[in-house]
Design a binder for these strands. Structure first.
Lengths: 273, 273
DNA sequence: CGCTAGGTTGAATACGCTCAAAGATCGTGG
DNA sequence: CCACGATCTTTGAGCGTATTCAACCTAGCG
């Protein structure tokens, strides 16, 4: 990693509830003070990265995980013909390399898209709060499971949907993920990536990506202006994309589910003996 | 789940070391008696399923995880046009729904391909051994991370590789995963799935799948006989597929890595306070 | 003002799909 | 033992989505 592209600083005082990860978790259940403190501790240091900087290299060793506080990042692999496949994006509130401490090698590269503000943490340093405060462990596990769903949806998109559908599907996913951290407004969000990134995510050529976006524009489904995206008809988009993904905000009763997990039985199971 | 298709029985006495999951872990580090006992306990009950039976339904609630002891299963989603996308296969030694206890909904359906022998377990019942015996927790986390890599590879395959490459890539992945549980011999393994399954995995039509397999056969790279697959030139296949996936058996020093994780510092972090 | 990165469009090509039909294999029942 | 159906495999032919190649346009920046 080029040191010139990296700044480490202590975060200035902040309200934990404004942290994207906390916002996301807070949608799922009302966090108490102890939990907020533990999460705040995971955010204690901060890294600032320039845009377009690879900070995790395929095959390298790293036992560090990162919380995205601001900006976008992506995980990818380069191919011999000059092509690139983007595996997934990391948006504010996402965790990069969540199991780093348990794996000897980083399997894919991760780079920033925009200027990026990360909190670096070592899972092993937070294992105790995660397992002793049962709901935090559940939330962490829930998040791992969400990542798995995001990956599965990516497979569905590029495996069986047409370019037009794929694109609608991805826009919907990004919309809902940003919605969960309060970064949408009137079906509008900021998408700071070029068409090249979209193409490399959806397994399309740049040219076809462009034509596909044009078609969505012409059909009055999506409006693009600079990096602002407006989803003009979410219902129709979902129909086109066969979008059936887990909708975070509408998750009927994860709250009830989580509260249920704090029954004595489970407390015993999750708390340190 | 149709009860007629399901049998629950106690497993007859067995040597834990013959269990696929244990075999896989044992390649990574020499398990001690305590660890073997804990793993054996996770295998205490057994479910037998007929072939072609869906046993986890998209959207349903389930807090059960399963270890695959014998047979193949797959996770998939059906599409409105009658199509299907297979997200991943579950082979012996794999864990289905590893975080079930932490998630309110099963996001995708899972079905058996062959007759299937599973061990059902609830994660919460094994949280204590997993966290107090630090290496088991590491191995579980390592496995979650492996699943993530498998999903990422699936994205690379169908996103940026040609049908010919995709097929080679998938065959190599299956080969290495079976190798890890001792189910290969002389570059040969059993693949009990029709071409239809391969097509739905790789995002190809059945017809094109067939032509692609023929091309691999003609080029003398793979030999098919009934459900036996022989990889006749692994080096060349890897080159064709740009296969750079994590090779379990060659994992240079996961053992050293794991042993390192048992230093006093980490013991403290992982063991119950 | 000229450079660079990103976006847009046209035209030819190719990879993979659909439709269609014919073999192969296997279990089952007459 | 053979006939039959079901499932899987194989092959041909025409078509369509997406690719590649090649330009040109636009906006931002030094």
């Amino acid at each position: 990693m080029n040191p010139s592209k990296l700044t480490v600083k202590k975060l200035k005082p902040y309200n934990p509830r404004t942290l994207p990860l906390v916002k996301k978790f807070n949608l799922l259940c009302e966090l108490n003070e102890t939990e907020l403190t533990a999460l705040a501790q995971m955010h204690e240091n901060s890294i600032l990265l320039n845009e377009q900087t690879t900070f995790l290299n395929q095959g390298s060793h790293s036992n560090k995980s990162y919380i995205v506080n601001r900006g976008w990042a992506y995980r990818y692999t380069d191919l011999s013909d000059g092509g690139r496949q983007i595996i997934n994006f990391y948006l504010p509130g996402d965790i990069i390399n969540p199991l780093a401490a348990l794996t000897p090698k980083t399997a894919y590269s991760v780079a920033s898209i925009t200027p990026l503000e990360l909190s670096e943490f070592k899972l092993e340093a937070f294992i105790n709060p995660l397992i002793t405060q049962s709901r935090l462990g559940l939330l962490y596990g829930w998040m791992l499971s969400r990542l798995d769903s995001i990956m599965a949806d990516q497979t569905i998109r590029i495996g069986r949907l047409l370019a037009y559908q794929r694109t609608a599907h991805l826009l919907l996913e990004i919309f809902h993920r940003l919605e969960a951290v309060g970064q949408t407004k009137n079906n509008t969000f900021s998408m700071p990536i070029s068409q090249h990134f979209l193409a490399d995510t959806l397994g399309l050529s740049l040219v076809h990506m462009n034509r596909t976006l044009k078609k969505l524009r012409i059909n009055n489904l999506v409006h693009f202006n600079a990096d602002q995206v407006v989803l003009k008809d979410i219902i129709k988009l979902k129909k086109i994309a066969e979008y059936q993904a887990f909708d975070l905000i509408q998750t009927e009763n994860l709250l009830a589910f989580l509260n249920n997990k704090t029954n004595p039985d489970l407390k015993f199971a999750y708390s340190a003996a």
